[in-house]
Write a protein that binds this DNA or RNA. Structure first.
Length: 105
DNA sequence: GATATGACGTCAT
DNA sequence: CATGACGCCATAT
């Protein structure tokens, strides 16, 4: 069974992030089965639709989006009960732990 | 195949 | 903490 295309794997990972939780790009990449592809996660997020993209933040819980998009992300996170301090999220409190799923053994 | 893009991660200064 | 540089890598053209 051919693995789903990269984007699809990323979308699946992002969709697993529960409400009120966040994950970093690196974590999403890892959860998608391709560690070290944080930048590609960006492509996937832009290409996708209807994704909880606001639950994806940078390393250390930093909000990387700037301007209006960044504002919207903060609003959306706040709506889900995620406290945003400055442009940072407390990962210790809201980081989502993906199940360590190695690829199809 | 080559080049450009990108909401990154990590380390050095 | 701010900045710069480099590495990494899937897509688009």
């Amino acid at each position: 069974m051919r693995r789903p295309p990269y984007f699809q794997r990323v979308w699946a990972a992002v969709r697993r992030i529960p409400r009120g939780k966040v994950a970093t790009y690196g974590d999403v990449a890892r959860a998608a089965g391709s560690p070290g592809t944080a930048r590609q996660v960006v492509w996937a997020l832009r290409a996708g639709t209807g994704l909880p993209w606001h639950r994806v933040v940078g390393a250390g819980g930093k909000i990387l989006l700037t301007g209006e998009p960044g504002m919207e992300q903060r609003l959306r996170l706040a709506s889900e009960g995620v406290a945003v301090n400055g442009n940072r999220v407390r990962l210790e409190e809201h980081a989502f732990r993906f199940r360590s799923r190695k690829r199809t053994p």
